[in-house]
Design a protein around this nucleic acid. Structure first.
Length: 620
DNA sequence: TTTAGGG
DNA sequence: CCCTAAA
């Protein structure tokens, strides 16, 4: 990794005469930037301009991957400066079509210690984008394989990223360059990144400048104007909006100027109890959402709908159209001391974002909640054979954190693209294709950071995919950032695994048993015994969908316990002593008859004895 | 899927 | 309530 110093010197003295119609915001931002930043910026602008020009002339002719409708053009841009640039990476979106075009080149610059960073989180929210994002895959299984699919998806992502809806124009995030949207394409070597938007209007040029930000305190985010990292940004016209996904998938949108506090709202999905706990604790919990990544389907008319946002999968003949509406970033948790400053919080979040994306991301394909790891398999081989499988198809954005220096520990599939129905569909008889290897996150276990449990990741992914049916299955991987600075103020505390888990697989809401229910339960157990919960369920709770036989069993367990303790120690709605007595009696009875009771005891047996007990037979 | 228990 | 080993 090159030192900042080198970069600085390299930029010094280099000035770009003009910045093509850069928005005011950019120019404004420039004024506030440190010299070197300006240099960098200008350099970028320059490069961007060049690239734009070149791309305009070359893009048209460059169409490589046919079926994908994705064009990737590598443009070697040479600028005659002592600052030698490697091919710049430019991406632009060809507006007006439903196709996505992407021109990518590499920029030379070393930026962060984190190798790379990302500086925007494009929010794909309008249909317009949706269209652009749609991908048509030659699902005819005619050679396309998992890798191709991922590629396609990825390209879409890249393309979207270059929309004018980006935020970098608003000042950009130093230290954050959307370099590694994936380890595949970019590599930040010098800290420059340029992106052009082929909107036909130079004004739309997006220039991102990646400041040479050392991970030291001051510089970071200096020019960042309102870093609302974990929000989704969408720029329409001149307004930058940010959206933060609320607990219940409510997308809360605020204008950029809105108060940050709205952004950093604690998750309420945790449930009141826990929320309260969190609030009273010494830490704040932040569970930001970067994007939404959704997929919906419109093939069989089966409107997929995982939480309102959907994507559609159309299928024409042998082609399968994947339409990705938006991306959702995994929930991220940050715990920070209450005494930390807002700035610190911002920084922390920013760092985290940077870190998450710093390692680059990649697309994962899930089928029935299981990851398809073998990129070489064809779609059909992987089980993605026809539209009836679309229901079980999902995509994920996951950090390709193979880069050691990543400051955060990222997990498996951080992001998930829930398909509509969680139904498990037949999978290819040929190859269920899972576990083909390919280790996922080789995140570096930084002493403070490695707080995640990799083992759980897959399971969680599945869970969220298959269990959360009516919700936008939020697959979350907690990423715990390491405060690169202000360690004293920023006490980043590991998030409890359980807390994170609950975010994923929503814990059922607590539903205390009513006295009536207890009565019914006792009644049933008296007659059936304590080892036939299924029967108990069928007998007395058949229509109480929220009471599973496990619940009944658990309740009985607690009832026995409750009956055993003094009334003063009991909590919740008081259960009549009479019922508790019966509980104990039944418990005692069935405990004794357990051995031979296997199927022999007729219903009613206990009932008689229990009543006898109450009447006066000793034993209770 | 159910049971049975621990968490 | 959740999670699971066992059956």
């Amino acid at each position: 990794m090159k030192s900042k110093k080198r970069l600085d010197s390299g930029l010094k003295g280099f000035h770009v005469a003009t910045i093509p119609k850069a928005p005011r915001s950019i120019r404004k931002a420039q004024l506030k930037k440190p010299d070197e930043d300006i240099c960098a910026f200008e350099l970028l602008a320059s490069l961007a301009k060049k690239l734009l020009q070149e791309s305009e002339s070359s893009s048209a002719s460059s169409n490589a991957s046919g079926n994908d409708h994705v064009t990737i053009v590598k443009d070697a841009v040479k600028d005659g400066h002592h600052y030698e640039c490697k091919p710049l990476k430019i991406e632009y979106l060809d507006q007006g079509t439903s196709e996505v075009s992407a021109v990518v080149s590499e920029s030379a610059s070393q930026i962060c210690n984190q190798k790379c960073s990302l500086n925007e989180f494009p929010l794909v929210e309008d249909d317009e984008i949706l269209e652009r994002t749609s991908k048509t895959m030659d699902s005819g299984f005619s050679g396309k394989n998992a890798g191709d699919l991922k590629s396609a998806i990825f390209n879409s992502i890249s393309a979207n990223e270059n929309r004018p809806s980006k935020v970098e124009l608003e000042g950009g995030y130093p230290n954050v360059g959307k370099s590694c949207y994936n380890g595949m394409h970019n590599k930040f070597e010098e800290g420059l990144e340029t992106k052009g938007l082929e909107s036909g209007d130079p004004t739309e040029l997006c220039v991102t400048y990646a400041a040479l930000v050392n991970s030291e305190k001051d510089v970071k985010l200096t020019s960042c104007r309102d870093p609302v990292p974990f929000a989704s940004f969408s720029r329409q016209r001149n307004d930058v909006k940010l959206g933060v996904r609320d607990d219940d998938d409510n997308l809360v949108r605020n204008t950029k100027s809105s108060n940050m506090s709205k952004v950093y709202r604690p998750m309420s999905r945790i449930g009141d109890r826990r929320l309260r706990k969190l609030l009273t604790s010494r830490y704040w919990k932040v569970a930001p959402t970067l994007k939404d990544f959704e997929l919906s389907r419109a093939a069989n008319g089966v409107a997929s709908s995982a939480g309102g946002h959907q994507a559609s999968l159309h299928s024409k003949d042998s082609n399968v159209k994947f339409s990705i509406k938006s991306f959702r970033v995994p929930e991220t948790f940050i715990e920070i001391s209450e005494t930390a400053t807002v700035a610190s919080l911002k920084r922390t979040v920013m760092d985290m974002v940077t870190a998450i994306l710093g390692g680059g991301i990649r697309v994962g394909v899930l089928l029935n909640g299981k990851k398809i790891r073998d990129d070489n398999r064809t779609l059909s081989q992987s089980g993605i054979s026809s539209e009836d499988n679309m229901d079980s198809l999902g995509f994920t954005l996951e950090p390709s954190s193979v880069l050691a220096p990543s400051p955060v520990c990222s997990e498996d599939p951080p992001l998930m693209l829930p398909s509509s129905t969680p139904q498990l569909v037949q999978r290819s008889p040929a190859t269920p294709a899972v576990d083909s290897g390919i280790p996922n996150s080789l995140s570096d276990p930084s002493p403070i950071t490695n707080l995640t449990n990799r083992v759980e990741s897959n399971h969680e992914a599945m869970t969220s995919h298959t269990v959360l049916t009516d919700t936008t299955a939020p697959d979350s991987r907690a990423l715990v950032p390491v405060p690169a600075m202000d360690v004293d103020a920023l006490a980043v505390v590991p998030v409890n695994q359980k807390i994170r888990r609950s975010e994923i697989a929503q814990r059922r809401t607590r539903r205390p048993f009513s006295v009536a229910e207890v009565e019914a339960l006792v009644q049933a157990v008296e007659e059936l015994g304590t080892g036939r919960w299924r029967d108990v369920k069928l007998r007395s709770f058949e229509h109480a969908d929220h009471r599973t036989y496990v619940d009944l069993k658990d309740k009985w367990k607690t009832l026995v316990h409750t009956a055993s303790i003094s009334p003063q120690q009991r909590r919740g709605e008081p259960v009549p002593q009479e019922l508790l007595d019966r509980v104990l009696a039944a418990h005692a009875y069935w405990s004794q008859h357990q051995a031979k009771q296997q199927g022999k005891n007729q219903p009613g047996t206990l009932k008689l004895e229990a009543q006898a007990d109450r009447i006066g037979v000793p034993g209770m």
